[in-house]
Amino acid sequence: MAENHITEVSGTGVPIRGNDIDTDQILPARFMKEVTFDNMADYLFYDARRDDDGTLNDHPLNVYEGANVAVVNKNFGCGSSREHAPQAMMRWGVDGVVGESFAEIFRDNCKSLGIPAATADRETVTDLQDWIEANPDGEIEIDVEAETVTYGGRTVDVEIDDAMKEALVEGIWDTTALMYSNLSKVEETAAQLAYVEGAD
């Protein structure tokens, strides 16, 4: 898994409009009572996707099934630290996200999972959302290295923060092995801390 270089992701899009879409909406807490992430796709936006009688409504995830690129607005993924949220999106089929901004823990979780999270200004994002609505089968490509999104014959600039970009492109977004190789340095750092047992 850790060897995966992620230089681009592509596919059709799903516009999930609205600012401050929190992780309680993305993955309601009552579905976190499982010890694996295996079933999380079933619970993605569970309440928002259903009417009171339980039937699926016209939520974008019901309309744009099979999409790979989610396009969102400001402060997406705010609230809880639950990795269940991006896990559910990934398992549903989302390979990349474009938005105006992301809550930090959510973005970190995306990085851990190898999901590029690109940001752009409001106009760029809403243009893309409008375009998806007009072209539900249209292909969108996020070029991680070039920090661009290409769709409908045009290419627009987006931003992917340096650390995420480097990690995805170099295939080192899974940081466990990388940090594990520094374990002796970690022990040295710990030993210097006043509050760690056995420190100087």
Partner: peptide
């Protein structure tokens, strides 16, 4: 932190 980061902390 998210769960993958918990793994990082547990391991390293």
């Amino acid at each position: 932190v998210g769960t993958s980061q918990i793994r990082d902390i547990l391991a390293t």
